[in-house]
Design a protein around this nucleic acid. Structure first.
Lengths: 250, 250
DNA sequence: CAACAGCGCTAACATGGGTGAACGATCCTG
DNA sequence: CAGGATCGTTCACCCATGTTAGCGCTGTTG
């Protein structure tokens, strides 16, 4: 089958390390497999399930979340196209949280042996996969800082910044605009506030002329200003090419 | 040199997987090396430094933290004896946060090649190391849930529960007691509240007869009650032997 | 077309937790 | 022994954020 669309995992790993033809082929083979489609608001995997393999998001937005006994829910991470969800997570017996689809999602499930095929293949490939895992760990730590130290406005601004930079790194930003298909309730469950307060803070960011956001269409009117409010620095994303041209989708 | 004290990393990995004599020897060799002592409140590594190797905590408590421009500080994780700090973190060019010593700390720094020696040695060993890394990732996610969804009392109770279970798993609990050598300011920087409010919440937990905590000596007077308040479930720690006898100190 | 659900938005009110300041106890140090 | 630092503790006050309720728009479905 002809590979018209570029393999999103190859693209991701090339951000970290220069991969040889042979290495790229290995990754291609690992990713070759049936794409699975999940409808919006359905789960890819549920807490308590035995993990089957490692989801690689091909299209759409997914998220990890955990629900407390009394129904409160926290979104613990957001996964964009090209994101590998917890490589090696399959060795645990049981999921301690769920992964759901924020939008319609298409993903490939990499089986353990395909993962092993990649991780064992060569030093650069191993390194690239590790780099990816470390970046995710760093992001998760940054969310802890966000929730622990920043106030509501800063927190929201920070999340917008992170999403913007991550989307840009995978070519999903055109000019200063991108899709952010989250509801205000999603943002609330991500930033640990109520939907009502998210609304107040969104209005504030709009009022300051920092963002436009309507019907899922997001525009960073003043990216620098937004970063300032958030005290955002993209270091933790370890984007090699953080400064590269945003409209690089050719 | 005779190994009187058992290798803490071997002990840790044996929690996850049964290791052969040969595998244990490999781990022993990887850990063999000079112990480094850090004084209380000093840093093991600072943000911006190039990581040298992977610290393995032998004794004492360490913590990762990040400081915002305006001085606010968040503790992102706590490392107890036997904890390996971010295996493979050395492949990043630069630390995006710091690691400090809460108490006097003794640690060994595993060089990259020693890490590689272990990770490549055998399937069970690789798996054990992964298991450990995954557990840390899960803990980090749980902290996100804690900060995002639980209120101050629950958050504090949850932290005490986590520390208690983790200490118990490494044999540092006797009966229902253990050392928790944190100041209330440390707890504040961990749970995202002010020291004043930490104090109020500690009093509340004491008042309910759930804990005793004085001069660093902690006692879980009513562990079940504490877990209830916190909505704590130890699942995410993936302790094989969560229920084992607490006073198992040889 | 009617009914309904999801979403953004607003308003009035309630409260959890922050703020700033102070005091005593303990410990270290000169 | 005096002075200073650190830590736990308390208090009075106030603000950021939660709570509850409701409105209107839009899209979906029978």
């Amino acid at each position: 089958m002809p590979n018209t669309a570029p393999n999103p995992l190859v693209a991701r790993l090339c951000r970290y390390v220069r991969l040889s033809e042979a290495e790229q082929t290995v990754v291609d083979k690992a990713v070759a497999g049936p794409e699975i489609a999940v409808r919006q608001r359905r789960d890819l995997i549920r807490e308590g399930d035995r993990p089957r393999g490692v989801p690689l998001i091909v299209e759409g937005w997914a998220f990890r979340y955990k629900t407390l006994e009394d129904g409160r829910r926290q979104i613990m991470s957001i996964h964009l196209p090209g994101d590998l969800c917890d490589i090696h997570g399959y060795i645990l017996d049981e999921m301690d949280h769920s992964i759901g689809a924020l939008t319609p999602v298409r993903y490939v499930e990499l089986s353990p042996d395909r993962i092993d095929m990649m991780t064992g293949y060569s030093i650069p490939l191993t390194r690239a996969l590790w780099w990816d895992a470390l970046t995710k760990a760093a992001t998760s730590r940054e969310w802890i800082v966000n929730l622990g130290q920043r106030d509501a406005l800063e927190r929201l601004a920070h999340l917008f910044c992170e999403l913007f930079f991550r989307l840009r790194a995978v070519g999903l930003v055109a000019g200063h605009s991108c899709d952010i298909p989250l509801t205000q309730t999603d943002l609330a469950e991500t930033t640990g506030m109520t939907p009502v307060h998210v609304n107040r803070m969104v209005q504030e960011l709009r009022g300051r002329g920092l963002i436009r956001w309507k019907g899922g269409e997001f525009e960073a009117l003043d990216l620098e200003g937004l970063c300032d409010v958030a005290m955002f620095s993209p270091d933790y994303l370890h984007l090699d090419q953080a400064g590269r041209s945003p409209d690089h989708d050719g």
